[in-house]
Nucleic acid binder design. Structure first.
Length: 502
RNA sequence: GGCGGCGUAGCUCAGUAGGUAAGAGCACACGGCUCAUAAUCGUGGGGUCGUCGGUUCGAGUCCGACCGCCGCUACCA
């Protein structure tokens, strides 16, 4: 069952122009769960996340706060890091695009593209709104070529830029997606990408002279790279591109990029094209998540419908938030969440079903067996339902379907609760064989359920194990026998939340 | 306009390749149990599966039209 392989997973690097919010937490939690699952399988895992710290907006924010851009990003990046710590995000590396290692990688990578002839100097000519400090496409403008925000006429401006010859990769990219060489989950996103590709690609400008907060173009000091162009390359920085060929080859191109559907084009078009231009393979898989809606509404900074991830952690726990998000959304689709349902899910699934099952199981072992754990029974047909559910859960994690995996874990929990009702150990003598079988079965079922749950609720999962006398998760399969441990009763794993408004 | 997604019990959602009388969780009602975090177990009520039409012995599940919501259709990160 163990399969030793490698698993490289990335999150988008987060733009540090504000605090982490539910959307960014959702991305980090999904990626973290997948990383933890693969560690559990025994894979060698590299889980990368980080922050995107360049660009005009950052420069502006720093100016507004009257500090240097570097001081500004130092502050915001550290807020992300501590938030991820609170949310139990088990990243192996946290990249910041202002780090030297990243600057070096960007320069090497883009020099390779330059030398391969895919970057050329040109003029960007566009319709520019001075007030917005941004270019617009004609299709975006109001009648009379007016800026949609300021309603003032835009003016034609041109800027000397370096251009990436994205157009050269149209056919190649179409082929990569049609042949499945680059996998995309969920699959319907491929259509979006192909639809975009089939209208043909235009070259894009990738440098700016108007700002200085970025990675300098090595062959022309007047320019810095446009922020997206530098940001994507973080995926290579972390694996020593251009620096340690063996390490690079170890992790590339078998990477899984997790991203939100809003940034699919950058990852599905620009990024693979950049890789091809630089002479390396494109990434192998894109995992595209949907958006979270809060009470049916799109999240926005101003509205009061926000769920602040860290305040949920404070009220309940990181596990409670992680469980709810992973269990109640279908990866790849938009998901509707609410604080009320989060609390309901905490009580129903975690406190009542799982936590209480642990309590009553331990209590019965203490009362009836003097705390001595019963052995895990040998498999027979009574156990098959548990095994079937377990296998479903394993398959679900492997297929990036956390909600199904967690549903399976809860199925094992419910099955165990009903087993307890069936055997009623509390009304049988201590030495009753059925009781002992039942308790041994449930204890093992809880170990396996904890395994399925651990990518989502790592802290509570180890709480389940320790309460039941398991030293570690152990193999992902029914394991008869086992050493005897002495159990003692402990605090509830998930204290029940009092109902509101009564 | 083009491409795509969604519309299934009060709520959030599953429904594989069309087939025993349409599912889960939550919520609700009734019953059981008392080991357990007033937890748990069982049973039940509740749905014209967006609308209309078609293919088929048979369609939530395939085809067509329509209605509603949403996404993409390039330089905003």
């Amino acid at each position: 069952m163990a399969r030793m392989s490698r698993f490289y997973i990335t999150t988008p690097i987060f733009y540090v122009n504000g605090d982490p919010h539910l959307g960014t937490a959702y991305a980090a939690i999904n990626a973290d769960a997948f990383a933890r699952w693969h560690r559990l399988l025994g894979d060698e895992v590299l889980f990368l996340t980080g922050t995107d710290e360049h660009g005009l907006k950052i420069q502006q924010s720093a100016d507004e706060h009257g500090i240097s851009p570097q001081a500004w990003v130092d502050q915001t990046a550290s807020r992300f890091m501590s938030a991820w710590q609170e949310l139990a995000i088990s990243f192996d590396d946290f990249i910041r695009t202002t780090q030297d290692r990243h600057h070096r990688t960007v320069q090497k990578f883009l020099t390779a593209i330059y030398e391969n002839g895919y970057i050329e100097k040109g003029y960007y000519i566009g319709l520019y709104c001075v007030a917005c400090e941004a270019y617009y496409e004609e299709s975006e403008l109001l009648d009379g070529n007016r800026c949609p925000i300021h309603e003032r006429p835009v003016s034609e401006m041109s800027e000397e830029n370096y251009f990436f010859k994205l157009s050269a990769f149209t056919e190649k990219l179409i082929e990569l997606y049609e042949s499945g060489k680059i996998k995309v989950a969920p699959e319907f996103r491929v259509n979006e990408v192909l639809g975009f590709l089939r209208q043909g690609l235009k070259d894009i400008s990738i440098t700016r002279t108007s700002i200085s907060w970025g990675v300098q173009v090595p062959w022309d000091e007047q320019h810095v790279f446009y922020v997206w162009y530098d940001a994507l390359i973080n995926y290579l920085t972390a694996i020593s591109y251009g620096d340690d060929e063996a390490r690079f080859a170890k992790w590339w191109p078998a990477v899984h990029h997790l991203l939100g559907k809003d940034i699919i084009r950058f990852h599905a078009v620009w990024w693979p094209a950049m890789c091809l231009a630089a002479g390396i393979d494109p990434p192998s898989q894109l995992l595209v998540s949907g958006w979270l809606l809060v009470d049916g509404a799109k999240m926005s900074k101003s509205s009061e419908n926000q769920i602040d991830p860290l305040s949920v952690v404070r009220e309940l726990s990181a596990d409670a938030l992680r469980y709810y998000l992973l269990a109640s959304t279908s990866f790849g689709s938009d998901g509707d969440v609410s604080l009320d349902r989060l609390r309901a899910s905490y009580n129903a699934d975690l406190a009542n079903d799982l936590g209480n099952l642990v309590s009553r199981t331990v209590a019965l072992i203490v009362q009836k067996l003097g705390g001595m754990t019963p052995p895990t029974p040998v498999r027979d047909e009574r156990i098959n339902p548990l095994i079937d559910i377990l296998l479903e859960g394993v398959a679900a994690w492997n297929e990036f379907r956390p909600n199904a995996a967690l549903g399976a874990a809860m199925g094992m929990v419910r099955f165990s609760n009903s087993l307890l009702e069936e055997y009623e150990p509390w009304r049988r003598p201590a030495e009753d064989a059925g009781s002992i079988w039942c308790l041994g079965t449930i204890r093992e079922a809880l170990r396996l359920a904890a395994a399925l749950l651990s990518p989502a609720i790592p802290n509570a999962s180890s709480g389940v194990l320790s309460r039941l006398g398991w030293q570690e998760l152990g193999p992902l399969e029914w394991s008869a026998g086992g050493e005897v441990r002495e159990l003692v009763r402990a605090q509830p794993l998930f204290p029940r939340l009092a109902k509101e408004g009564r």
